[in-house]
Design a protein around this nucleic acid. Structure first.
Lengths: 234, 234
DNA sequence: AGAGTAGGGATTGTTCTACAATCCGGCAAT
DNA sequence: ATTGCCGGATTGTAGAACAATCCCTACTCT
C-alpha cells in the first residue's frame, strides 16, 4: 500500500519537474510566441548569432530551442543555411486537414471517454466564442475556436493525441498569419460548434461527426483558396 | 513554364537537403537503434559525457541528439538528473492505444484516399507477415506487423499522421522490450491483418474498422496485463 | 539505533571560444 | 549574358570551463 503511494508520488514529482522550464525551453517559447503572433513572418531567416544575443542566451542553448521548434514544424531547418519560419503552402493545408479529419472525427465517433467533464469543456469553448463574437474581439474568436477543437480531441482521452493536436493548431496559426483578413474566417463556424456540442450532449455522435466533417472540408477549401491565391499573386 | 519547373525543383531540393543527416541526427539514430533493439533497457540512465565519447561526438551535439529523442518520447529528460530510457507503464499503453484507435480506425473509415497503391502496400505487409511466420522469424513477424499498421495510417494520405504513427510505433517497440516473451505476441493477429486488407479491397470500410477495433482492444489488454504484472513482481 | 544534517563528488545546464564546412553574393573573364 | 571563382558570412561541431543541482556518505545529535 505504502509502496503504491510512494511510486505514484514520485512519478508525479518527476512529471512536474519535467515541466519546469529550462533556459532552452524559455528561449523556444519566446521565438514561438513571436512567430504565432505574426511578428516573425513566414520565410524569415533566423540567424543564430543575432537571435541568441537578442534573447540573451548562448548560441548553443538557442540551437536547442530552435531544434525544438523545428520538431514542432513551426520552423524549418535547411542544413548550412539556417532555420527559417515555415512557409506553408496549399499542400500543407491539405495535409493538416487530412490529419485533423482523421483525429477530430475519430475522437468524436469513439465515445468511450465522453464524460461530463470533457463535454463541459466543449460548452465552455462555445460560450467563449459567443462572448467574443458579441464583443467583436476577433482574435478572441479565433482563440475560442481553437479551444473548441482542442476540447474535441480531448474527448478521446489521450495525452499523445492532445499533443499532436497542439502541433496541428500551431500550424493553423501559421496559416492564418499567411492569409489576408483572417478576422472573418472563424465567425461562420461558431454556430456549427454549438451544433456539434449539442449533438454530443445528446449522444448523437454520428450526427456530430457529419457536421464536423462538413465543417472541416469547407474551412479547408477556404484556406486552400486563400493560400493558392497568395502564391500566385507574388 | 520554366518558372514552375524551377520552383518545384527548388522545393524538392530543399526537402532532400533537410533529410540529409547531420552529425546530431546520426548520433540520435545510433541511440535510437540501441534503445529499440533492446540493448538499452528502459530506465537506463544515459550520462552525457560517456555517451558522447562512446559515439564520438561532442557533448553539445549529443545533447541535440538527446533532445530529439526526448521529443520522440523514447527518452525522458529529468532536469538536472539527465535523460533515461523511457519506462512505459500501463497508463502509457492505455494512452498509446487510445491514440492508435482514433488514428488507425479513422484512417480506415475515411476512404477518400484509398487508392490502388496504398492498398497494395497493405497486401505487401500481409504477405511479409505470412512469409516471416513460415520461416518462424519472430522479429520479422513483429516488423511486418508494424509495416501493416503503418500502411493502414498511410491510407489517410497525410505525412503528418504518418509521422505521428511512427512515434507511436517506436513506443510500441519500447513496450515489447518491456514484456517477457514477445515472440508469440504478434502471430495471432496476422490473420486479422489479412481480413482487414480483404475488407478494404472490397470497399467494406466499416467491417474493416470493426475488425481493427477488436484487434486493437485485445492487443491493448494483453499488453496492459503484461506490463502491470511486471510492475507488481518487482 | 535512528533521524536529521552537512559536506563532497559527480552530472547537468549553460556559456564562451574556436575552427572547418558550406553557402551566398559579387566580381572577373570569356 | 553566362560561367567560374573568390571572399565574407553563417552554420555545424568540438572543446573547455564553471555554476547549479543532485545524490550519496559520513557525521552528529537525541
Amino acid at each position: 500500500m505504502l509502496e503504491d503511494v510512494l511510486t505514484t508520488l514520485e512519478k508525479r514529482r518527476r512529471q512536474e519537474r519535467t515541466v519546469l522550464s529550462t533556459t532552452a525551453d524559455r528561449a523556444a517559447s519566446v521565438v514561438r510566441e513571436q512567430v504565432t503572433e505574426g511578428a516573425l513572418r513566414s520565410g524569415t531567416r533566423l540567424p543564430e548569432a543575432a537571435l541568441a544575443q537578442a534573447i540573451g542566451v548562448s548560441r548553443n542553448t538557442l540551437r536547442e530551442a530552435l531544434s525544438q521548434l523545428v520538431a514542432e514544424r513551426i520552423l524549418v531547418r535547411e542544413p548550412h543555411r539556417g532555420v527559417v519560419v515555415a512557409t506553408p503552402d496549399a499542400d500543407d493545408v491539405t495535409d493538416v486537414y487530412r490529419a485533423r479529419l482523421v483525429i477530430e472525427v475519430g475522437a468524436v465517433l469513439d465515445g468511450t471517454m465522453h464524460d461530463e467533464e470533457r463535454l463541459a469543456a466543449l460548452d465552455r469553448a462555445v460560450a467563449e466564442g459567443r462572448d467574443a463574437t458579441e464583443a467583436q474581439d476577433w482574435p478572441a474568436v479565433a482563440s475560442a475556436n481553437q479551444h473548441f477543437h482542442r476540447a474535441l480531441v480531448a474527448l478521446a482521452g489521450s495525452s499523445r493525441l492532445d499533443a499532436e493536436m497542439e502541433l496541428l493548431l500551431a500550424e493553423m496559426r501559421l496559416f492564418f498569419n499567411e492569409m489576408t483578413g483572417p478576422e472573418s474566417f472563424h465567425r461562420p463556424y461558431l454556430d456549427q460548434n454549438a451544433t456539434i456540442a449539442a449533438h454530443l450532449r445528446a449522444g448523437r455522435r454520428a450526427e456530430a461527426a457529419a457536421v464536423l466533417r462538413d465543417y472541416l472540408t469547407r474551412a479547408r477549401d477556404q484556406l486552400r483558396d486563400a493560400l493558392t491565391r497568395r502564391a500566385s499573386t507574388r
